[in-house]
C-alpha cells in the first residue's frame, strides 16, 4: 500500500462516567484502534450500537481529542505537523441526523456556502460554488437554495449535507450512518450519488453503518468493531466470504435474507454487549462467544493476519495456524 491518505494510530478515547480518584469510572468508548485508508478506497465500519463507531468517526475528523494516539493525514500528524485548519478542509463528515446537522435558521445555500467562507473564499464565490454543488447533488438551487431545513425531506436534507461536505473540496469524507435514517428507496439514490461522487472526485470514504448489506455494497474493505476495539478488518469479499472472528460470523448470520430457505431461525447473538465501563477480561467478546475456549477469558487476543490485508483479533486463529 502506498502512503495512506488517512490513518489512525492506537486511538484511545475514554469518557468520564462519574466518580473521583480511585473510584473514577470511565467508558472505554474507543480502545487502541488503528487502521489505514488508501487513497480512493472506501472503508466500511460495522458493529452494534455503542461499539465506538461514532466516537471513532469523531476522533478521525478531530471533533474529539483522543486521550492517546494520533491521526495522520498523508503521513503527517494532525496538530503538530499539519495545522488543524488545513486538515479540516481535507477531511469532512456527514452525520446521521440530517435535520440536526442543518442550522434551522440558515437557508440551504448559506449552509453550503458557510464552509468555503471560513477558508477565505469570498461570499459571492462561495454562493456560486454552493449553487453548483446543490445542482450536483440533485437539488435545483433555484428551488431549494432559499429553503430552510424543515422545508426539505430527509433525503433532500442529506443531499444538502453531502453538498456542504463537498464544498471544502475534501479528499476524505467520514459518513457516520449517513443513509441509515432514510427510506430504502431514498437510501439507494443517496448511495448511488455517493458512489458517483467517489468516482468523479476520487474521494475516500469511511462509511459507518449497521446495515451490513449496504456496507458490503459500497465498501472495498470492512472493519468490524466490538466494544471499542477492532475485531476484524479485511477486504469486503474475504471478510463477508470467510469471516475469521466469531463476532463477524454472528453479525453476518444475523443479516436478514429475502430467501425463505435462508431464514434466520435463532438469534445468532443473544443479549446486549457488556458494559463498556467494565469490559470483560481477555477477549472482550468471550462472554457472548459460542466458541470461547481456554485463553479467551484471560488473554487479550493479538491481531492474526488471516489473509491478504485481512486481520482478525481472535484466539481461534492461533489454533487454525497451528493446525495448518
Amino acid at each position: 500500500m502506498s502512503t495512506p491518505i488517512l490513518s489512525a494510530h492506537s486511538l484511545v478515547k475514554h469518557f468520564n462516567a462519574g466518580g473521583f480518584g480511585a473510584a473514577r469510572k470511565v467508558v472505554r468508548a474507543v480502545d487502541d484502534v488503528s487502521f489505514e485508508l488508501a487513497p480512493g478506497e472506501t472503508l466500511g465500519v460495522v458493529g452494534e450500537s455503542g461499539c465506538g463507531k461514532s466516537t471513532t468517526a469523531r476522533l478521525l475528523v478531530q471533533l474529539l481529542k483522543p486521550d492517546s494516539g494520533s491521526v495522520r493525514y498523508e503521513g503527517k500528524v494532525v496538530g503538530p505537523e499539519l495545522p488543524l485548519k488545513a486538515f479540516r478542509s481535507k477531511v469532512q463528515m456527514v452525520f446521521q441526523d440530517s435535520f440536526a446537522s442543518l442550522n434551522p435558521r440558515m437557508t440551504m445555500i448559506d449552509a453550503v456556502a458557510f464552509g468555503p467562507t471560513v477558508h477565505g473564499v469570498s461570499q459571492s464565490d462561495a454562493i456560486r460554488k454552493a449553487q453548483d454543488l446543490l445542482d450536483r447533488v440533485g437539488l435545483d438551487p433555484a428551488r431549494f437554495g432559499g429553503r430552510y431545513a424543515h422545508e426539505l425531506s430527509g433525503g433532500q436534507r442529506q443531499r444538502v449535507n453531502i453538498a456542504r461536505a463537498l464544498a471544502f473540496d475534501p479528499q476524505v469524507i467520514v459518513l457516520d450512518e449517513a443513509v441509515s435514517a432514510l427510506d430504502k428507496s431514498v437510501e439507494a439514490q443517496v448511495l448511488n450519488l455517493l458512489m458517483d461522487l467517489r468516482r468523479e472526485r476520487g474521494l475516500t470514504y469511511v462509511f459507518i453503518s449497521h446495515d451490513l448489506n449496504v456496507v458490503r455494497h459500497i465498501s472495498d474493505r470492512v472493519m468490524v468493531m466490538y466494544l471499542g476495539e477492532v475485531a476484524e478488518i479485511g477486504p469486503a469479499e474475504s471478510l463477508y466470504g470467510a469471516p475469521c472472528h466469531p463476532y463477524t460470523e454472528a453479525l453476518l448470520a444475523a443479516m436478514p435474507s429475502l430467501d425463505p430457505d435462508q431464514r434466520t431461525m435463532e438469534a445468532p447473538l443473544a443479549g446486549d454487549p457488556p458494559n463498556p465501563i467494565d469490559p470483560p477480561s481477555g477477549c472482550r467478546f468471550h462472554t457472548r462467544c459460542a466458541r470461547a475456549f481456554g485463553p479467551c477469558s484471560t488473554q487479550i487476543p493479538p491481531s492474526y493476519t488471516v489473509g491478504r490485508s485481512h486481520v482478525a483479533a481472535c484466539h481461534l486463529n492461533s489454533v487454525k495456524e497451528h493446525v495448518a
Partner: peptide, 13 residues
C-alpha cells in the same frame, strides 16, 4: 450539542 454545531466545528471556523 447539535450536529450542525459539530459540522461548523469540522469546517474549521
Amino acid at each position: 450539542k447539535l450536529e450542525y454545531i459539530e459540522a461548523a466545528q469540522a469546517s474549521g471556523a
